[in-house]
């Protein structure tokens, strides 16, 4: 499947969902619009545009435009996937472990993904985390302490 087709299906789904959710709200009229009218109009527009992206070339075969570009496989896609998982895990760990522990762990994993050696990795993770906590406390940003480490 080409990258354009993937995008087309995703945005078609998003557009149709917006329409479905908007209809549940009051639509009102053009003179007195309800909260659902504007999102409905946007949902329809998004769905139509996604439809053009999906089937435009079939409907207008003479139209100009680049040919379908296959979804490229990156040689580093495993590293990118690992980074994605790490970043998402970070958002889950942050409220639980708190900023210090979760950031140290996540920075360590990210630096490891960059093939940094273990001693340098530990030192850099500690340094980055420590400097950030110090800087945040200087400007009074209360970074999350984490459920495990909170006093209450």
């Amino acid at each position: 499947m080409t990258a354009d087709r993937v995008s087309g299906w995703v945005f078609l789904g998003a557009g149709l969902f917006a329409c479905y959710a908007a209809i549940d709200m009051s639509l009102g009229s053009l003179q007195s619009p309800g909260p659902g009218l504007y999102p409905l109009a946007l949902g329809v527009m998004l769905a139509v545009l996604a439809g053009i992206l999906l089937w435009g070339r079939a409907l207008w075969p003479g139209s100009r435009g680049r040919g379908a570009v296959p979804a490229a496989r990156s040689p580093r896609e495993k590293t990118v996937a690992a980074a994605l998982v790490t970043l998402l895990a970070y958002t889950a760990l942050l409220p639980t472990l708190g900023f210090g522990a979760s950031t140290f762990l996540v920075l360590g994993v990210l630096l490891r993904l960059g093939r940094m050696r273990w001693p340098a990795l530990v030192v850099l993770s500690l340094a980055f985390t420590g400097v950030t906590i110090a800087a945040a406390s200087l400007v009074s940003i209360p970074l999350p302490a984490g459920i495990l480490f909170s006093r209450s």
């Binding site: 980074a83 970043l87 960059g114 940094m116 850099l124 970074l143």
Partner: peptide
């Protein structure tokens, strides 16, 4: 780059949280 990307993550996380 391998040092740059953890730094950017750190900056954006603190920025968005704050």
């Amino acid at each position: 780059h391998r040092v740059m990307w953890p730094l950017i993550v750190l900056i954006t996380v603190v920025g968005s949280y704050s």
